[in-house]
Structures are given as C-alpha cells and as structure tokens.
C-alpha cells in the first residue's frame, strides 16, 4: 500500500489540511478525500475539461495534477467561484441562458469561463469558442454556453 501524505493548501479561500494517498491526483483528492464532488471526472486524461480547477489562479485539469503538487499552493473549484451569498455572474448567466442540461460538464465550463473572463473580460465569440474547446459538452451543442459566457461578460462590464 502506498504512502499517505498531509497536504496543506489554500482551498477556495481557506487554508485546508488533508490527508491523501501519495498516488492521488488532485481530482482524486478533491473528490474522494475532501468531498468536493463538484469537480467532475469525465475522461481522467486531460481531454474533456470536466475536472477543471484554478491552480494558483491558472486553469488546469485536476486529473493531470498530482495532489502532492498543491501543497503550499492555492486551488479554486466550482464550489469556490460564487461571491459571498451571490452566484458568480457566469453561474447566473448559465441559469438564465439555459446553458446546462445534464450539468456534468457545467462545473468545468464555469471554471474555464471564469478564467477566460478574468484575463479577457470582453472576448469575441471566436475567442470564447477557442478557449472552451478543451471542455466537452454533449448535451447542449454549445450554443447556449457560448451565449451565457457572452451574457456574463456583459453583466460583469456593467458592475
């Protein structure tokens, strides 16, 4: 049996200590050790984006990060993107625009879309489509997701 390790990381704004298996990916640890099951496992090899989180502020697939790597770093998951008691504008836009159906890809899209709008507040349709190409959705045809990101961009500009 492999080794257990203690990891300390800034998780959604709070310093969190947890025990993981040395062979856990960040995805494994978030879901199975901490219970943050909003992070979804879709392909487990970096090709669907369902497990996307921000690691030290940068968009990554948590299935392609070892849990041990985040010791001393910071991780933001879908559970941590809402603002106090209010949904993040991109979450609200996904609801308003009916941008989710089954919802399994939604957490990854939300984190990726937030990362996009953080660096490029007014993306073009082309830029949104390119940025989100690493996130697969099989229900929506992407139409309403793209619209929702456009709407979120607009509502964030107003604020």
């Amino acid at each position: 049996m492999s080794k257990k390790i203690v990891i300390s990381t800034d998780l959604n704004g709070d310093i969190t200590e947890f025990i993981a298996d040395e062979r856990d990916s960040l995805l494994d640890a978030l879901r199975e050790r901490i219970g943050l099951t909003g992070v979804k496992e879709g392909c487990n090899n970096g090709n669907c984006g369902a497990c996307a989180v921000l690691l030290d502020g940068i968009l990554v697939n948590s299935c392609c990060v070892m849990a041990a790597e985040v010791d001393g770093g910071s991780v933001t998951t879908v559970e941590g993107i809402a603002l106090e008691n209010e949904l993040h504008p991109v979450q609200q836009a996904f609801l308003n625009e009916a941008a989710l159906q089954c919802g399994i890809c939604t957490p990854g899209f939300l984190v990726a879309a937030k990362a996009l709008l953080d660096t490029n507040p007014e993306p073009t349709e082309e830029e949104i489509r390119f940025w989100l190409a690493g996130n697969l959705c099989r229900c929506t045809g992407y139409d309403k997701i793209i619209t929702a990101v456009q709407e979120a961009s607009k509502s964030m500009q107003k604020k």
């Binding site: 970096g46 968009l59 990554v60 697939n61 392609c64 690493g134 996130n135």
Partner: peptide, 9 residues
C-alpha cells in the same frame, strides 16, 4: 497544444 487547461501546465 491541448486545451487551455493543458496549456496552464
């Protein structure tokens, strides 16, 4: 190379 989340790493 990969999607944006891959390019983060």
């Amino acid at each position: 190379i990969g999607g944006k989340a891959i390019q983060g790493r």
